[in-house]
Design a protein around this nucleic acid. Structure first.
Lengths: 113, 113
DNA sequence: CGAGGTATATTGCAATGCAAAGAACCTTCT
DNA sequence: AGAAGGTTCTTTGCATTGCAATATACCTCG
């Protein structure tokens, strides 16, 4: 039987994993932006995210019509997909903000004992 | 190609998922307790958790030596496993509390713009 | 053209929540 | 004793998703 031990770094990573959709929508809500800059912004905020995570996630967010993108040319390489929120995306961001606030309350409830 | 749309309820659930280890350790830190009561406490705090989630999680936490248990008889059914924190568990709880505080700061960083 | 940098995408794996089903133990009622 | 129903713990199979690694394509410069 498989019975993996829990690694603490994994648990902390799991916490971050849970808020990634939310964090990406927050970053994009500040203005049109392309993937490598999203990664930089998240890192500045304290979230380490890599390409293999962000591209599938952006595709899911686009498929869900929370994000849309426009190609823009670059002086430094191939064209970039600049993402921005759709109106559905803004609604989702409000929902997820509520979810975050609920979760904060939940943990506060458990911590204050 | 598989390209699932993101469901908002799932995203909110994902957030909660990320803190489950932490939440369970917090509940157990209040005193020896068995699984169905852990579920109740989490529900009171705002986290919906079911058996198929909690039992494997408790087993992982025990395997990781964060929790230990004693069998206790019950008047209402089969004996129960009462879990409590080990010293490793208390250390893990401090680590995860730090992780939670970091995550709160991260989201604050992103929200305040 | 070749080298090196930039941008996006894909594959395979690992972790884990959960629905559903099952197993084992207990009390109560008939 | 047997049946019914509740309680407790376990297991199986599936879906989701982060990530390392790899691939693909485009761009500029020499």
């Amino acid at each position: 039987m498989i019975m993996e031990k829990i690694k603490l770094e994994n648990s902390r990573a799991q916490m971050k994993k849970g808020v990634l959709d939310f964090a990406v929508l927050l970053v994009v809500s500040e203005g049109a932006i392309y993937a490598p800059d999203i990664i930089v912004k998240l890192k500045e905020a304290g979230l380490r995210v890599v390409e293999g995570t962000i591209y599938p996630l952006l595709n899911r967010l686009k498929e869900s019509e929370f994000l849309e993108y426009e190609w823009k040319e670059s002086k430094y390489g191939p064209p970039r997909k600049y993402y921005q929120l759709t109106s559905r995306g803004r609604a989702a961001l409000r929902e997820l903000t509520d979810g975050w606030n609920e979760l904060s309350r939940t943990i506060s409830n458990l911590l204050k004992k």
